[in-house]
Structures are given as structure tokens and as C-alpha cells.
Amino acid sequence: MATSKLGEHTSQQYEQELTNIRSKVIRMGGLVESQVEAGLKALVSSDGALGEEVATSDYKINTLEVEIDDACTRIIALRQPAASDLRVVVTVIKTITDLERIGDEAEKLGRLAVELAAVDREPGYFTQLKHLGEHVRAALRGALDALTRLDVDLAMKVALEDKMVDQEFDALMRQLITYMMEDPRSIPRSLQVMWCARALERIGDHCKNICEYVVYMVKGKDIRHTSMKNSEAAK
């Protein structure tokens, strides 16, 4: 996360504490991103071993979440942050919750990859899933970039694009229903693919949340639960 456009704090230690938090959030974002990437890869390439690895690596993200949470609590208790500093701390606390949930979804992808790798695969399912996955990965990348560079325009763009992920998800859902109606034997597998799609769609939602936090952090305006038209006005 870039330091805000302001100068440094008079207290060097405070400056350092905030910098530490920022760099940890970025590290956590990087970890989450690689987990999602690996989970997707395991899924589309039927790589059970990779899936297993993803499913068991989530603890790293969780540990970071606890560490950052702790550091934020300390800053609030000891430094009483105000204005942009306060917004940074509040945003960080919320962001890491969403990042941790994305990590959980990635873990889910890993587990499902292990199960799906063990069964026959119908290529049709996975092209769609891959497509959805690409969208979600782009959203995650965009959200993390916006967070790192405090880029409000990018954050708004990514938040808006969450609709596309939702549409993609709906399309996949319809396709799965068709499969299931055509051949009831495909129901167990279709359901598993559906869980995957659901996990990806949730990741998209978390990315949108992070983007909204970025707007709040930079502009001090809360754009949650407002129509995008209003959000544009907030800029």
C-alpha cells in the first residue's frame, strides 16, 4: 500500500508501525492471490496434489490475519489514529477479513479439486469454470492493485465489474441445470462444479468489498450499499 500523499509522522515509531501494517496487508494479499491461482489451476488441470497443497496452506493467511489484527488494535490503543490514519487502520481491519474469507474460498477450491480429480471429467464444465475463474482472478488482481496504489478509479472499475462475474455465474448455473436434467447421473459432479463456481463468485464479492474500502480510505466516502451512480458522484 502506498503511503498516503502526506508527509511522515513526527513520531518515527508510529510511522514504522503503520508501514509494517501496510506491508503485511500487501503480503497477505499476495498470499491470497497465489492461493486462488493455485486452487484454480488444480481445478482445471485435475491436479489433486496441488489441490491438497492449497487446502492445507490456508493457515499462513490466517496467521497473518491475526498478526495484522493485533497490530491494528495496538495502534488504536497506543496512537489514537485520526483522519487518514484512522481510515487506513479501519480499512485494513476490514480488508483482512475479506482477504481471509477469500483464502477460505481458495481452500474450498483446493478441496473440491482433490475430489473432482478422482472422477471422470467432462471438459464442458471446466471451460466455463476456467472462464469464471479468469474473471475472478482479474478482479482480485485489480482490487489488490487498487489497494496497493490507493487507486480510486481502478477500485471503482473493479467494483463495477463484479456484475460480470455474477452474470458469468448465472450462465454457468443454467448450464449445470441443463446437464443435470439431461443426465441425472451427472448430478453429483455438477453439484461439485457448482460449489466451485459458488466459491469463485464469493471471491468476486469480497473483491468488490475491498474496492469499496479503498474508496473510503482514500476519499473518506462510504460507497457501500449505494447504487453505482451515486458512487460515481462520490468521486
Partner: peptide
């Protein structure tokens, strides 16, 4: 105002 921000966040003063 940036000066207000600087002051209340402890960047000078």
C-alpha cells in the same frame, strides 16, 4: 484541508 490532516494525524505540530 491538508494542514488540518497533518496536524491531527501528528505529522507536525
Amino acid at each position: 484541508h491538508k494542514l488540518t490532516e497533518d496536524y491531527i494525524t501528528g505529522r507536525f505540530g
